[in-house]
Amino acid sequence: MKVQCRLFASLREKVGAKEKLLDLPRGARVSDALASLGLPSEGSYILLRNGVHAELHEPLSEGDVLSVFPLIAGG
């Protein structure tokens, strides 16, 4: 299944892209997506699946958009 990954801040340099379309096996989880991006799953991230906070073990679906941020703040 296809999952669109969007990367932000320092992760762009780490992965070498702003966006990546991943082809993952059915039943893949958020952590699998991170692995195929080459991001260690024990790192600290803010993860949004279709704009809503997601957990590492959460299963993904065809057509999902996964936004991956490092821990950030501001305001």
Partner: peptide, 19 residues
């Protein structure tokens, strides 16, 4: 890291992605 690397405007994208 978060604040020094990209400053406070690093929030633009995450707030936008979250709607």
């Amino acid at each position: 890291k978060g604040l020094p690397e990209f400053g406070t405007s690093v929030l633009v994208n995450i707030m936008n992605e979250a709607g």
